[in-house]
């Protein structure tokens, strides 16, 4: 291992790093926002960051056919997440409906 391994700049690496940054952004906002909707959005951004790691890892460089299995994982993940998001939003609406503004 070289002292500072900096591999060649490929699309795969760029989107990999973007995925890592998205995970960081989403975690930060998820932990520091008190708005229910922002927290739900943060979880969605987090899952997109994870999906970016999968999709970038599946890519084998220009010209090569990418691995279909992680693509299937991400497809499954997208559908799972929309279901959970719908549940979260329904809960958030109920909380908004039943209570005053206080967060008790």
């Amino acid at each position: 291992m070289t002292p500072f391994p900096f591999p060649d700049l490929t699309p795969q690496l760029i989107y990999h790093l973007a995925g890592a940054a998205l995970v960081g952004i989403a975690l930060y906002r998820g932990a520091t926002s008190s708005d229910l909707l922002t927290r739900i959005l943060a979880l969605n951004v987090l899952s997109v960051g994870i999906a970016a790691v999968f999709v970038a890892a599946a890519n084998r460089g220009a010209g090569a056919v990418p691995d279909p299995v992680p693509h299937a994982f991400v497809l499954t993940g997208i559908v799972v997440l929309v279901a959970v998001t719908a549940a979260l939003l329904a809960l958030a609406e109920r909380i908004d409906l039943t209570g005053a503004k206080s967060d008790d």
Binding site: L36, I40, L43, V84, L88, L91, A92, R94, T98, D104
Partner: peptide, 15 residues
């Protein structure tokens, strides 16, 4: 309301 609030936090933490 208490249960709904707990459920929301539970779902967020679980997710």
């Amino acid at each position: 309301r208490r249960a709904l609030r707990a459920a929301f936090d539970y779902l967020v933490a679980g997710l």
